[in-house]
Nucleic acid binder design. Sequence first.
RNA 1: GCGCAUGUGGUGAAAUUGGUAGACACGCUACUUUCAGGAGGUAGUGCUUCACGGCGUGUAGGUUCGAGUCCUAUCAUGCGCACCA
Length: 911
Amino acid sequence: MEYNFKEIEAKWQAYWAANGTFKSEIDSSKPKYYVLDMFPYPSGAGLHVGHPLGYIASDIFSRYKRLCGFNVLHPMGYDAFGLPAEQYAIQTGKHPAKTTEVNIARYRSQLDRIGFSYDWSREVRTCDPSYYKWTQWAFLKMFGCWYDPAQDKARPIEELEQKFATEGYDGITPERWAKADSKERANILMNYRIAYQGETAVNWCAGLGTVLANDEVKDGLSVRGGFPVEQKKMKQWQLRVSAYAGRLLADLEDLDWTDSLKDMQRNWIGRSDGTEMIFKVSNGSEEYDMTIFTTRADTVFGVTFMVLAPESEWVEKLTVAERKDEVEAYLAQARKKTERERIAQTHTVSGVFTGSYATNPLTGEKVPVWVSEYVLAGYGTGAIMAVPAHDSRDYAFAKAFNLPIIPLIEGADVSEQSFDAKEGVMINSGFLNGMQVKDAIEAAKDYVEAHGLGRRKTNYRLRDAIFSRQRYWGEPFPMYFKDGVATPMPFDKLPLQLPEVDKYLPTESGEPPLGRAKDWTYEGYPIEKSTMPGFAGSSAYYLRYMDPHNDEELVGREANGYWRNVDLYIGGTEHATGHLIYSRFWNKFLYDLGYVCEKEPFKKLINQGMIQGRSNFVYRVVGTNTFVSCGLKDQYQTTEIHVDVNIVHNDRLDLDAFRSWMPEYKDADFILEDGEYVCGWAIEKMSKSMFNVVNPDNVCDTYGADTLRLYEMFLGPLEQSKPWDTKGIDGVNRFLKRVWRMFYDRDGFIVTDEEPTAEELRTLHKLIKKVQTDIEAFSYNTAVSAFMIAVNELYEHKCNKKAILEPLIVLLSPFAPHITEELWHSLGHEDTITYASFPKCNEAYLVENKATYAVSFNGKTRFTVELPADMSREDVSDHVLSLDQTAKYVAEGKVVKVIVVPGKIVNIVVK
RNA sequence: GCGCAUGUGGUGAAAUUGGUAGACACGCUACUUUCAGGAGGUAGUGCUUCACGGCGUGUAGGUUCGAGUCCUAUCAUGCGCACCA
């Protein structure tokens, strides 16, 4: 009987679905384990072979955990709001909901073919009103809360109102509060809410017609679409993520994430401990106290000028009349630049003098105040003290504008460049002279605080998240404007459903698409017209899976108490500074209010590598419809064009397929080499636009899902990125066929009840041990190899004994669920292999005659002997013995392992 | 510029964590079988040499009886951050 994967896979997929095999319910008699994949955005291109890599890994782990007796929650859903569906809608007029629906159906059928053990009864879609009801709910909760630094957590805004009214808070006295009318009170409270509306510099992307969050912009271009982004001041909804910066940083410690990912988050949060210091500044007529932030309070004696960010409000106050034109001109050209231009000019120095002077609080010296783009408005106070001797940026500025440079560290040569290192002995620094820099920093901080010149301050780079998008396809804000005051809709009106519009473009007056909706009002008042960004719906989806049909709560107390948080989360690194920060923030917020019981959402996180595509190119001779083969392309002027990898085999182009690929190539001519057209190639991201997408369906058709699963794991370490290459998939397929042949030969079933030999048991139990440790270490590629080795050994000895094969296929079942399920039933089992138990390794089968076990190597002998119980590691470690001595110890039975390097040294190794 | 990874055959990769480098798989070579289909089996396959042998984990040093593994430089590639005071 042949291994008919098509029949087998279809049969068991249908069986699992019909029997609800992977449905999980709360079961307090079993320990829980929550395995989650980052849910996909269902794009129109469908799944490619890269997507399932992480899904297969998590599926293996889920199935493994089930075999180990855990109650496993392994759900799947769709991140279904997003830009591509909307861009498509703008072009075609098709409703994004329809497009999304179609794409989801396609994803689902592709996922189903791979045999995942998802509990589909828990599926969520972020664009589903019954789901986004809870996204809106969370937003309203954030609107209704402020961050109390004293308790270091979010609290209801009513508590703050109470504070204002009774004792006053943050400069708002009870008198002022009492005098304020309702509108003014609303404005004050807005400055404290976790979800708030505020005017800030935002990343405006004209190409997409919307603002973007920091993590949605890269190198001055939008991540989606690659359109230029500029800085613009706008009033936008924002989330006060910055309030959680300290906790987001501190709680990273206990997470089982890779160091590189934690580092990325630390970097993004960007904690820096420094000092806020007050400088007196004067424009000749008026004097002010200006606060600056520095991490090098020790260098105050070297301050030779001050610099303001162009957007700083100090610029206006400190620009003297005669310099006004020059400053205005500078501000104007700075404002015009796009983010991208700014980045490109990072190292060119520009600036302008305001005409004002500041007084150094320690030396009493007057220093000029400048304006320059190199100071950022959004960080610290938007103003700095410049110490050119010990800061490279200040140094470049001082050199460009001929400002003095005063060295403060002994031996530092600042004639060519600044000395930025925090080491050495202080000079020219009054009371700090003679100290080490590290000590001087502390001493300076103490001095500043003691003399009322400022205070210690911790700053974070993490900014609040811009939360509104001027787009259609997202969650509407359940907010309306009552006499201009942003007012939440009541909870029982949720979900606020996305209205229909005639077009998905902004209105003529420049309002977001929701401006087109008919009667977009609540009780006669206008409703907010922006929608929420992509990360809104993906921030708490892991909670919703715990209790997806609950209409009363985001997640019920019982469900949350049982499933708690995600034990294993698998997904790509691209979410390091976006989703993974927002989700942690969202969770902490809900934790503060007592809605969830864990302070972190994802305990262990694994980043699967990306599967890159291998693209192929053809070379068109410029101005013609003639294509020249890769080897001859240098003789012509050519344009490199991506060609569909599916019409290229082994880098040779199928000419007819190419002609019929696209109408414009119908009459293409070719210049061949050796009668063939050879394509160029490159490893690139797998994407539709590069025509290098390999569809998992094709692999399933040719080799089957089990082969696909094993092969993707066999390809290399999970975390590593690698190009998709089908070379080698045959080996994995052969392995499965070999497993099959251990059960069936040409004539039928051949498994016997014979007793296994010691050798066979050894092979089996070695495998059990190896597979278990490899799965737990996510070293799936070596686990697959171990299977191949074991099966080769057994196959060679024609082992078709049930006592060996039965545990073997249980071991294999997480990797190749279909074939093992079929074989499991062929052994007479009624129930699915999912309910089997993971075999236990019996160490007794592994240890064999240890005392006399010898391995020969290059003519010499290596022993392995047992270590007596009374001998410890300390007794033998690092002992180097001669051959004779070793022989003696071996004879006395004191050694566990002896290594003999030919003709040289003998060393004892103890485990 | 700063931070983090990674460098091993023709290819994807292993290496019990400091102890026979290259397991396993692809590819290739030879033989074999035939139910000729991307099938099965056997042997070989790091480089070099007719051979004995020698050389081999990006490069150069170091520690060690012993280094792919540890340390120091250096180069290359990838990723992240990037005027964050």
